[in-house]
């Protein structure tokens, strides 16, 4: 068996530490144990945005450099991103039910995340639909850019439409009055999730590279040209 990559081991290690820390910190003053959902929800949301950004970067770099490694980065990041965007939505709903009393509320950040989720699904569906690697890279790069460029417009319009959500809790000085240990654990979780993201993207890219290598290996063998598959009809020799 192949030895796991150092990044995988490091990600697993930090994630474990973050989990233990998250379970050990005292419950939050107002929301109690429920606030622990934030240790997953906040880092997932961060990753959703991060992977969108990386997909944009990979798409733009592919169009500039025409090197498929950038396309693999864009694709891998979107695959990891769609998972974390979904997780963000699911956990947001789980947290929202006891906090706001409803599973879903039409606030700006929630709607934006849901839109991002669908944009990701469309992007991945496009990738799945095209077999030729170069064709796929070109088309998905344009969609990757279009999707991300539209996001500020979506964000802006949704924000304008309505805002209910509490403003960001971490960066606001008079925020949720998070205790120092709680805040520390949250940063730990953010760090661990970012490591997990890096490890997953790396693994996806490694997979994609293996597929390319396999295809090249098949191609490098002396394969008969397509026309050779057709032979002269052998009339009269049928049993």
């Amino acid at each position: 068996m192949k030895r796991p990559h150092w990044l995988t081991i490091a990600a697993a290690g930090t994630l474990l530490t973050a989990m233990v820390t998250a379970l050990m910190v005292p419950p939050e003053r107002v929301q109690g144990d429920l606030a622990r959902v934030l240790f997953v929800h906040v880092p997932s949301a961060w990753l959703a945005y991060l992977s969108f950004g990386v997909t944009l970067l990979g798409s733009a770099m592919y169009l500039i450099k025409q090197d498929l490694k950038w396309d693999r980065l864009a694709g891998a990041s979107a695959e990891v991103g769609v998972f974390f965007t979904g997780l963000t939505l699911a956990l947001g709903m789980i947290w929202g039910k006891p906090t706001w009393g409803v599973w879903w509320t039409w606030d700006a950040r929630l709607v934006l995340t849901a839109v991002m989720f669908f944009v990701y699904l469309g992007y991945l569906a496009l990738r799945r639909g095209i077999d030729d690697p170069v064709d796929r890279a070109k088309r998905s790069a344009w969609l990757g850019i279009l999707g991300v460029v539209q996001i500020p417009l979506v964000h802006f319009s949704v924000l304008w439409w309505r805002t209910l959500h509490q403003p960001p809790t971490l960066l606001r000085p008079d925020g949720m009055q998070m205790d120092a240990p709680f805040r520390g654990a949250l940063f730990m979780a953010l760090f661990a999730f970012t490591m997990v993201y890096a490890a997953l993207v790396r693994a996806h890219i490694a997979n994609a590279k293996d597929e390319v290598r396999l295809a090249e290996l098949i191609a490098s063998e002396e394969v008969e040209v397509a026309g050779a598959a057709i032979t002269a009809p052998t009339l009269g020799e049928v049993d």
Binding site: D131, D132, A215, I218, A219, V223, V225, A226, G227
Partner: peptide
Amino acid sequence: RIGDTPIL
């Protein structure tokens, strides 16, 4: 080459 198949 179209995919893995050489044509010419």
